[in-house]
Design a protein around this nucleic acid. Structure first.
Lengths: 258, 258
DNA sequence: TTTAACGACTGAGTGATATTCATCATATAT
DNA sequence: ATATATGATGAATATCACTCAGTCGTTAAA
């Protein structure tokens, strides 16, 4: 409710200044940039603590110490501990979405895209598993999650998957089965649950991740790779649908030209 | 490590009680019963608060008030807030496993069993969604989750699913594909993630639950039903007609251009 | 019966932690 | 140079999990 607290909702802006400003803010750029870099420092410090020790075990004084500010200062930038955690989460989602988009763009087929997304998601959440706590326990349940910043960022992130899936259906590589959101839930739900299993196995190797990823994608794709098996009616229809879809693509391409 | 706190493990230990009862029939029994009913009251009160307000927002004094005991008394029965939450979770798992076993026994085919298990799980966790917080955030992460009571109860619960799946493979109703634990993760992960989606939809109907359940089971079963259908001549002709039509579209398109 | 021991329970007290607020410090504007 | 707004501080407050010295009633020993 205070004036400076409103700044807390801002996101990226990378101008990183020297961090030796813990005591006497002598040199530096504009006032605005100084404030921004302090906010960044707080988020970085909070991120470190949260991923290392989890939400409940992380104390505000610990974050303040790491960030080189007083405890009260934290509350100039974020209304409370939850808001600070949400800011950390927002930064995480931004990174996640960016790398996902870049990776997908490099893939050719739908299978490759899905496998990339699955592996990317799984490895990311294994690395920052503690942040998932926040989503599950504090953030998603409290108040109106829908409409919040985190909700929007989550939508943007899963939209990457949605686009790949829709495109796959459009190109005939995936059969047009269930509603989109069900497949999305299966995708992300499986990965987040698998994370727990992998973390508990004594030696969770690269191989395990690959196994999960390929199996999941195989299921979602409808097992298009069953070559040696005899032709079923369903296979036949699927094949024709792909020809159909290809023709439609050409049609639309041609229409767009004229 | 106090004397009365050891009771907190509240599993069966009836033999000792029986002996004591045979020696001193009336007084020992009543005292024991009084203690037991008080423990039950505490667990019930904790369950109410936890499911209503979640772990962090539930206070020990609130539980004590609901249970009709002093705050300190809670610590005679459970070492700390986490242990109390675990006891609540243990009771939940017991109910869940029991009803799952009973329901599966009534089903004939593997598909029916899986669909029952999926619906049962989904409806249960929607009803007691706050308890999942405990599993994800506090219980599973702290200390040695593996080897704990909750871990064992979880194993016993998912074993119901494992048995159904193994049986399905054995009977040839499911193809022998990936490792068992991957399919298990896909099953429970999808359902728990779907729960969140369903809870957020304005009107999450019975229909949505059914859609999730059938789609998930369909994926896991590998569509063994449609795969075995032979191709009929009529199917083939219809398919070729579609390819023909697609070709015609392209022809017309090409003519229109020139 | 008297009395000592015991088991069950209590609630004021303790320490830790999130959050507030009166106060101070610096930079920019006048 | 002075004033004002902006930013920062940390002691004080409130809340909560958890402790412990002590109460009360029952049982067993005297």
């Amino acid at each position: 409710m205070k004036q400076p607290a409103k700044r807390a909702s801002q996101t990226q802006k990378k101008s990183r200044v020297a961090k030796a400003r813990s005591r006497h803010p002598l040199p530096a750029a504009t006032r605005r940039e100084r404030v921004q870099s302090k906010e960044d420092a707080i988020i970085v410090a909070a991120h470190k603590s949260l991923t290392a020790r989890g939400f409940t075990k992380t104390t505000m004084s610990e974050i303040a110490r790491k960030a080189g500010v007083a405890e009260g200062t934290l509350y100039l930038y974020f209304n409370n501990k939850n808001a600070l955690a949400r800011a950390v989460l927002a930064a995480f989602y931004t990174r996640l979405t960016d790398t996902a988009k870049i990776g997908v763009a490099k893939c050719a087929t739908t299978t490759e895209k899905l496998e990339f997304l699955a592996r990317h998601h799984l490895e990311s959440i294994i690395g920052e598993r503690r942040l998932l706590e926040l989503i599950a326990s504090d953030v998603r349940n409290t108040e109106a999650y829908e409409g919040s910043d985190i909700y929007k960022m989550n939508r943007e992130y899963v939209a990457v998957f949605d686009d790949v899936l829709r495109d796959g259906v459009w190109r005939g590589e995936i059969e047009d089965g269930a509603v989109q959101w069900i497949k999305r839930d299966i995708f992300f739900g499986s990965l987040e649950y698998s994370m727990r299993t992998l973390l508990m196995k004594k030696r969770s190797s690269k191989k395990d991740i690959t196994a999960v990823v390929t199996e999941l994608v195989k299921l979602l794709m409808g097992r298009a790779d069953t070559r040696t098996e005899p032709v079923s009616n369903r296979d036949l229809i699927k094949a024709v649908e792909r020809v159909d879809a290809a023709a439609s693509r050409l049609e639309r391409l041609s229409e767009a030209k004229t």
